[in-house]
Structure formats: structure tokens, C-alpha cells
Design a protein around this nucleic acid. Structure first.
Lengths: 233, 233
DNA sequence: TTCCGGTTGGCTGTTGACAAGCGACACTTC
DNA sequence: GAAGTGTCGCTTGTCAACAGCCAACCGGAA
């Protein structure tokens, strides 16, 4: 009965399945639920102290977002991304963020620009500290600024969904393979174009910037990081 | 008990909620279920001859796709798109299709190119016949060729979802406002670039091509076609 | 020892009932 | 007559039980 049995719940306003949805989503995105984990409805529901109904509802939404895969009559599994699926996502990300920059540049407020500069500076600091995790967070925020400032809600939604799925694998961060310094230089170049109000150039630079890790993944020995689909699938 | 009470059902392989999902999706996309229609679970379930469970499951998926909106404790409604939401979608569509062209051009088979030419010819015929509906279908197919040929499954998925939501409103087809002839010329120009293997130029032309109706919608008296969000939302 | 068939157990898909929330209507009061 | 409040009914959210399917296990035959 008591939802509080699960530690991370606090909000009581939303419906039960929404809470479960948010909870599971969080668990998956933070990799506390590893890709490939099979989810037994009855066991999970019991563990959460709820019945199977809301859990199924939540799993359905997660499946629609691509975070879990439902095999009919065989249960739900936390989605694994194959290398090609990851690459596909990367290409789409590039297209979406390029659009975001084009839309955002003419709309940026002074506060936005200040934040971008602050983030760029922060990246340098992270690089000096060899704080890879920190760099990753800041980098992500840098890109998000444009998406948020684009003013296009659907773009924000689709980008968020995409990054949610890919984020789990990006924590290992291929971004760094080309070297932190190069990444910083690229961000600075983008920022210059932004300050100049040149949306087209900013977008082109961003596309090139995103393409870098793409090539790395493609050609590198990064294979070990992927949970590639088994031969039969 | 009998699913066959609903005329459009034929397939029996899939699970019940999947059939309901496909059925409702079809109904919505063909506008047999108009935007704004409120869906009463009990009544709908009875009408379909099933219980509320599978119906709720299906509604959940449709909500995740954006085709229906679920207001907690207040039921499901077939989604209305406001003008700005539609414009947002159009911009994203442009970005996705531009990516599709870039990816597809180097991968196009002779059969693909032949199909594109055939479709371009068919557009001319439709224009001569003043067959607006036909033109719309062919046009859609023309764009889809690139998406299919891109080889990027995620792109296909996201594009399909986007078009499903927007398609309902596009049946009225703003595409034509600029004149069928102009649209045909634009397609021909794209096709030339494709034949020349110039992916970049093709993508740029496509972006411009998609932008046209966008401007029309923005500035025109097309307002009547939209079910704009009520002032309080 | 290996392969095939039947059986069993556990899981999901589906169902119908229960409970809680929201909105509408009517009644009272100013 | 209008505004506020209380009640009633319908709808959704949740639950627990039933039934069907899949897969793994076990036994027997080649």
C-alpha cells in the first residue's frame, strides 16, 4: 500500500504510475538498472509495494521512449543499444542540435550568452583538473543551452528523449578521445560565431564538432563499450 | 468477447492492445476520430468488445506518440495541434529530412533513383489533373524515399512519428499555396542535385523547399484551419 | 549419449470489481 | 437575482484473480 517503501519517492501529487515511471526512468538513466536487466512484473510490483497495473502502465511509456523493450509474452528488458543504433542516434542528434543553434542564435539573451561563456570557462577548468566527469556535465549543459533557447518545444522534447537513451552510453564519453583541448577549441569557435550572430557558421561548426566522436566510435576499438546485439538478433 | 465486432480488425496474431493501438492510430490519422474528441474508456471498450485494460494500454502508447493527450483523472482526448506546435514540428521535419537526404544520396540504388523520377513525373500528371489529394500522396512518398534510403532506423522512426502527428493537418495541404508548379520545379531541382550526387546541394534545396509552406502558414490567413489552444492553456 | 516429445511451472495478457477524484447540479443565503 | 457551498453521479486510477502461452525441465527411445 505504502508507496514510501521505495526510498526515492517523495512527490505524492501525480498518479501512481507517473511516479513509477519517473522512478524507473531515473534508475535506468543512472545505470542502476543495467541494460539487459529483465524486469519481472510481479516481483517488481511487490518490491515497490504496488500492483502490476501501474507498473505495466509505466513500462509501456518507457517502451515508447525506447528505454525498455517489451517482448510480447516474454517480459520487459532494459534496452541495449547496438553500435549502429548508437551511431544512428548520433547523426540525428547532430541534425537536431544544428537546428537548435540556427534557431537559438537570433534569440539568445545576454544571460544566455553569459552562461555559454561561463560554461566554456568551466570546461577549461575541468580540463586542467582532469575532471572528466565534470567536463562531460558542463559540455552537455553547453549544448542544452541552445536547445532550450531555440524556443521550439518539440525540438526540446525529441532532443531530450534522444539524449536520455544515448546518455547512458555517453557517460564513458568518447568526446574526450580527440583530446579535451580540441573539444574546448571547438566550443570556443562555436561561441565566436554565436557572438558574431552568425547562426549559419555556428551551426556548421557544431555539426563538425559533433561529427568528431562519431568518427572515433566508428573506426576505433571502442567496441568493448558496447553491448552489441547478439548474433541472432 | 469478439474482437471482430470492430470492422477493421483482421489480424489476430498480435496482442489485443496492439490491435487496439493500431486501430485507434488508424482512426486518428484518417481523422475519423477528430482532434478534440474525448475518449470515454468504458464506452469505447464496450464498443470494441474488450475490457478497459488493453484500451488503456493502447491509449498510453498513443499518448507517448503524441496522438492523444491524457489529462490525469479527466480522460483522454485526441490531440489538437496549435499553430505554434505545428510550426515547431515543421522545423524539426526540415532538419530530419535534410539529414535524410545527406545520408541517402550516396546510398541510393538505381531503383531508388528510378522511383524518384517516376514520382516526379507523377506529380506533373497530378498537377495537370488538378488532383490535389493525389499530389499530396505522391509528394509525401517522394520525401519518404530519402528517409527510407538513409539507412538510419532511428531517423525513420522519429520522422514517421512526427509526420503521423502533423499529417492530419497537412491533408489540407499548404504545400499548394505556392502553386503546384513551383513545388514541382523545386522537386526537379532537388532531383538534379541528387542525380549529380551532390548531397549538400540537395539538402540545401530541400530545406528551402520545406521552408516555403512554413512561411505561408506563418503569415497567411490559414488560421481557420487550426484548432488553436484555448486562451487558458 | 543425444534427440525428441510431453508435461509442468511461471510469467504475461486480460478481466471485472472497488475506491477515489472531479465536475455538474441544485440548494441555500445574501 | 447572483454567488457560494454541499451533494451526487460519472469517470478514471488501482487492485486482485483468472486464463493462456512460452520455455525450461524431465523422461524415454534411438
Amino acid at each position: 500500500m505504502s508507496v514510501e517503501t521505495s526510498s526515492t519517492f517523495g512527490v505524492q501529487n501525480r498518479t501512481l504510475w507517473e511516479q513509477v515511471f519517473a522512478h524507473l526512468r531515473e534508475e535506468i538513466l543512472t545505470s542502476r538498472l543495467a541494460p539487459g536487466t529483465e524486469i519481472n512484473e510481479a516481483a517488481f510490483a511487490k518490491q515497490l509495494g504496488i500492483s502490476r497495473g501501474p507498473l505495466r502502465e509505466a513500462l509501456g511509456r518507457l517502451a515508447a521512449e525506447g528505454l525498455v523493450t517489451i517482448r510480447p509474452r516474454r517480459g520487459a528488458v532494459v534496452t541495449k543499444l547496438s553500435r549502429t543504433e548508437f551511431m544512428d542516434g548520433y547523426q540525428v542528434r547532430e541534425a537536431l542540435e544544428s537546428l537548435a543553434v540556427k534557431l537559438a542564435v537570433p534569440r539568445l539573451t545576454d544571460a544566455n550568452r553569459a552562461e555559454l561563456h561561463a560554461l566554456a570557462d568551466e570546461m577549461v577548468e575541468c580540463a586542467n583538473r582532469d575532471d572528466v566527469a565534470g567536463f562531460f556535465v558542463v559540455n552537455r549543459r553547453f549544448h542544452d543551452v541552445f536547445v532550450q533557447a531555440s524556443g521550439n518545444e518539440r525540438l526540446q522534447e525529441m532532443h531530450g528523449q534522444l539524449m536520455a537513451q544515448m546518455g547512458r552510453l555517453m557517460n564513458k564519453s568518447f568526446e574526450l578521445r580527440g583530446g579535451l583541448d580540441q573539444s574546448i577549441a571547438e566550443h570556443r569557435a562555436i561561441l565566436d560565431a554565436v557572438d558574431a550572430g552568425d547562426a549559419t557558421r555556428a551551426a556548421r561548426l557544431l555539426e563538425e564538432h559533433i561529427e568528431v566522436p562519431q568518427r572515433v566510435i566508428d573506426s576505433s576499438d571502442a567496441a568493448a563499450l558496447f553491448e552489441d546485439e547478439p548474433p541472432d538478433e
